[in-house]
């Protein structure tokens, strides 16, 4: 009796130790991941010169809230966030619809060159968006769409769609065909099958596509910097870039702009975190 008891106890202790080690490692990594955000928030509230402190962080005393008001007003954050949302939102919508339709056509419909065309589209995944920067500049000038959102949406869509099709075709292959058979019997058209029957089932793949398209394009700024010039359409990342050169000597204000610009995606992420995790799960495993 006593023997088993001690055995249980040591086993328990061992488990506890393993668990604490696990916690320690996880926490350490979490700090490494999270620290920069703390850091930038911290120094967005201090004086400009506090960045050079000998400590790691510095308690803002008192917090310099005016950094934020300056950043909000002069950084034009609201305007640029809306621009970014418009551009990325439109991109996501087009990519989602095209991936769905193409995914269906490639996995369900029967036609001769399906594989060749699918390869043609998927190869787009391997081509870096930046290689089209120079020619697109001349092309967009010809069509007079420089300095309009179209100049960003076209390349964003073209380079996000292949990944979307990749995820969608992978996903659709796992859907049983019985569902549509019934629909076809009922005389449904292809469009109705896609949007009424297939779309609801592909929800998780859709979420994956939306998340990936968002992440890939939300931060993009080389295209933005090259194709846009007026305040009218400039997107958020480029605005931060521009602002940090405008307020060269105002470190704290720069940091405040960074915090403000990080907020939209952070909020979206924290609110949707569960769905994003699930969505990416499905897409990744099936894709």
């Amino acid at each position: 009796m006593t023997n088993t008891h001690t055995l249980n106890k040591t086993a328990k202790q061992k488990k506890l130790i393993i668990k604490s080690i696990m916690w320690a490692i996880m926490s350490l990594f979490a700090v490494l991941q999270f620290f920069p955000l703390i850091w930038v928030t911290n120094f967005s509230l201090t004086k400009d010169s506090d960045v050079f402190t000998s400590g790691i962080l510095k308690v803002p005393d008192p917090p310099e809230w005016q950094n934020y008001s300056l950043a909000w007003v002069n950084g034009n954050i609201l305007k640029y966030t809306i621009n970014s949302m418009f551009v990325v939102g439109t991109t996501i919508l087009i990519v989602a619809v095209l991936s769905l339709i193409l995914g269906y056509a490639f996995t369900r419909m029967k036609w001769k060159f399906a594989n060749a065309w699918l390869t043609f589209i998927l190869i787009g995944m391997m081509i870096p968006i930046h290689t089209t920067l120079l020619p697109n500049f001349l092309i967009f000038r010809q069509f007079n769409i420089l300095d309009t959102p179209l100049a960003l949406i076209i390349p964003y869509v073209a380079f996000s769609m292949p990944l979307g099709v990749f995820i969608m075709t992978g996903f659709m292959r796992s859907i049983p065909r019985e569902l549509e058979e019934a629909a076809v019997m009922d005389g449904c058209g292809v469009m109705r099958i896609i949007f009424q029957i297939i779309l609801p089932i592909t929800k998780s793949a859709m979420v994956t596509i939306i998340v990936m398209t968002f992440i890939n394009n939300w931060n993009e700024f080389i295209m933005g910097a090259t194709f846009l010039s007026s305040v009218m359409w400039k997107t958020l990342p480029f605005a931060v870039y521009e602002f940090s050169s405008q307020y060269v000597s105002r470190y704290s204000v720069q940091f405040a702009v960074m915090v403000l610009s990080a907020l939209p995606s952070l909020i979206v992420y924290i609110c949707l975190n569960e769905q994003i995790a699930k969505g990416v799960t499905f897409g990744a495993v099936k894709g």
Binding site: F34, P237, N273
Partner: peptide
């Protein structure tokens, strides 16, 4: 932890 680990991905590279 899942939320914490993913955070750098959603913050702009600029930042």
């Amino acid at each position: 932890f899942r939320v914490l680990f993913f955070i750098p991905c959603v913050i702009s590279i600029m930042v």
